[in-house]
Amino acid sequence: MEASNTTTESVYPLKPSDDERLMAVLIYVTSFFTTIILPLIIWLVKRDDSRFIDVTGKNYINFILSYTIWSAIGLLLVLVLVGLIILPIISLLVFIFHIVAIVKAYHGEDYLPPLSIRFFS
């Protein structure tokens, strides 16, 4: 009887190629210029070519939607003055998690930033 190997096996059967990693990095890097349009175009064009790019694109969209919701909540809280503290923190987290996601994508790792809601799986 053969034991199943379900320990630390990656989501991806093979290590992502350099081109796949480049496209995943571009999803995050282009978001500094256009938050949704360019990353969405890259994801929609390349998602059928690579599972890694598909998962990275979904993670990015989940990340942006989640932090848009958190920012909207922060804006509402500005009315109660609590948002004056929360909005800068959210902005800083978005920047930091963008950089971390770029590095993770470059190394071929799946990364969904903390506090992200998984709208697409």
Rank of each mutant, 00 (worst) to 15 (best):
S31K: 01
Y28C: 00
Y12S: 03
L112T: 09
E109C: 08
H107N: 15
R21C: 03
V80Q: 13
L38V: 09
K46D: 05
L79Q: 08
R118F: 05
F95R: 10
S10H: 10
L79H: 12
Y12V: 06
L26C: 06
I36M: 15
L92M: 09
S91T: 10
V45T: 05
S91Q: 08
P114R: 15
V29I: 15
D48C: 03
V82W: 12
F95L: 14
I90R: 03
P39E: 05
W70R: 06
A72H: 03
T34H: 02
G108I: 03
K58C: 02
T6M: 06
E2C: 08
D49L: 12
M1A: 12
L65R: 08
T8A: 07
V78D: 15
V100S: 02
S4Y: 04
S50L: 04
M23S: 06
E20K: 03
S71Q: 07
I117M: 10
N5Q: 11
S116W: 02
R51K: 10
I86Y: 09
R51I: 14
L84H: 11
D54P: 02
Y111L: 02
G108V: 04
E9N: 14
L38Q: 01
L76N: 13
R118K: 09
V94W: 06
T34M: 05
S10V: 05
L40Q: 04
Y12A: 06
I64H: 00
P113T: 02
Y67I: 00
G57W: 00
I42K: 00
D48T: 15
S17G: 09
N62K: 04
E2S: 11
K58Q: 07
I73T: 03
G108Q: 10
L77P: 03
S71G: 10
I99A: 10
V25C: 06
D48Y: 14
L81Q: 10
Y111D: 01
T68I: 15
M1Y: 07
I89P: 08
V45R: 07
I61W: 02
F52K: 00
G83F: 06
L38K: 00
T56M: 04
S121F: 14
T30M: 14
T7F: 15
S71I: 12
V80R: 09
P113S: 06
Y106D: 11
I41C: 08
I117A: 09
I102S: 00
I42E: 01
L87N: 13
T68C: 08
L79V: 14
F32V: 06
Y12F: 11
T7Y: 11
I41F: 04
L44Q: 13
P88D: 05
L81Y: 11
W70I: 04
S4M: 09
G57P: 01
F52G: 01
L76A: 11
K46I: 02
I69K: 06
L76T: 13
S121K: 07
L26R: 01
S66E: 02
L92V: 12
